[in-house]
Design a protein around this nucleic acid. Sequence first.
RNA 1: CGGGGCAUAGCGCAGUCUGGUAGCGCAUCUGCUUUGGGAGCAGAGGGUCGCAAGUUCGAAUCUUGCUGCCCCGACCA
Length: 443
Amino acid sequence: MRLSRFFLPILRETPKEAEIVSHRLMLRAGMIRQESAGIYAWLPLGLKVLNKINAIIREEQNRAGAIELLMPVIQSADLWRESGRYDDYGKEMLRIKDRHERDMLFGPTNEEMITEIFRSYVRSYKDLPLNLYHIQWKFRDEVRPRFGVMRSREFLMKDAYSFDLDAEGARHSYYKMFTAYLRTFARMGLKAIPMRADTGPIGGNLSHEFIILASTGESEVFCHKDFLALDAPAENIDFESRAAMQGVFDTWTSKYAATSEMHDAAAYEAMPEADRVSARGIEVGHIFNFGTKYSEPMKAVVNGPDGKDVTVQMGSYGIGPSRLVAALIEANHDENGIIWPDAVAPFNFAIANLKVGDAATDAACEKLYGEFTKAGFDVLYDDRDDRPGAKFATMDLIGVPVQIIVGPKALADGKVEVKHRRTGERELLSLEEVVNKFAAKKG
RNA sequence: CGGGGCAUAGCGCAGUCUGGUAGCGCAUCUGCUUUGGGAGCAGAGGGUCGCAAGUUCGAAUCUUGCUGCCCCGACCA
């Protein structure tokens, strides 16, 4: 992408409403625009990151055996009357009437709809287990939206729903998602710790929140320090193996970890002081096993091996990709701007032409831009006729991990400078070395 | 939902107390110079002062009502 042709409305000054760093940086980097309280337009740069996050989530959901579909944002109130939640959900649910005065709503979640889809088609225990997910916009009419996309009213959610014949199967499904979540967050460079959680209005008896530690997090969390050193399960782990899944779950739940609302001060303080970690955290995922809470009233049943009807066991599993964008920034920034982890960076490389119009720098930049593009990378070429300082500031603000600086001085010796955003490390390389070292990798 | 605050150019703000026909910085456009950490000079464009009533010869400024947004608290992917 040539920056001169891109739509990147960066701001030099911080809009006054932005309180936390991720919100400030998202506005300044031209990632989002507020259209209403808690409702945001995603500008090109923000959307690129959101899509990268979604891609990782999809890969890991698919790996764990979940199957993607897409449900609508507008739902009929009748479905919610069946589960009893139409009255329970309260003002958080945005209620709408269509032209025929029918009660509709903007979905805050999809348990009812997925259960309706399931019961319409699935008749046999042989079709279980089944896990269906989608990535779709949700609306919850929060009393007080704030912190940009961290707590917005409209937000993107990946929600998966599992269906099993019995409680044991449902636990296995739960563990599979538990494992997939650990991998998903780890791939984004986040250390997410599962914490025993309250089930809230979703219901059920088994639930974990996935919390990432960040000094600006919304809630206080407590855990054993060993969780910080644990590695996520490997890519080749067998999701179908009940023993393997149980093993992951046991490893990640064997020690103390709780949010402030589930905090057990006595258990926490029973640990040696050196093992205790008390920090701020951001909830980026939440999983539930709720048995027959929806399948019972909505009559989602299958024929069991003995020919008798069995009410299926369900669970739901949510990740907020739009919130994750903000959470990633909270965990990865400095005074100059965002520092994207490679896996979610909107651009892998940026090429800064320090002297646009100079035949040598123009030619070097075009060559590099061509090679990186050909290699399949997202590369941003700053070809604007602007001062070097402005280009450095822009690249740092939007957080491109590897910045290739092409200026007349170094180029006179056939070199360009490669700067790594995270470490600040710089190296002088020839064009050929840059291409071989970076552009050749992806294939 | 309780408490507090704000609304003037794309962004950040001054002007409001004490009414007299709107200004500053950045950004934008044009020209020249400049080119390794957000350039300089010269010129230009851009605002029914959130909306609606009222008071007044005259309202960004005073009064009333409404709307939007932000912050603190209680609640939440």
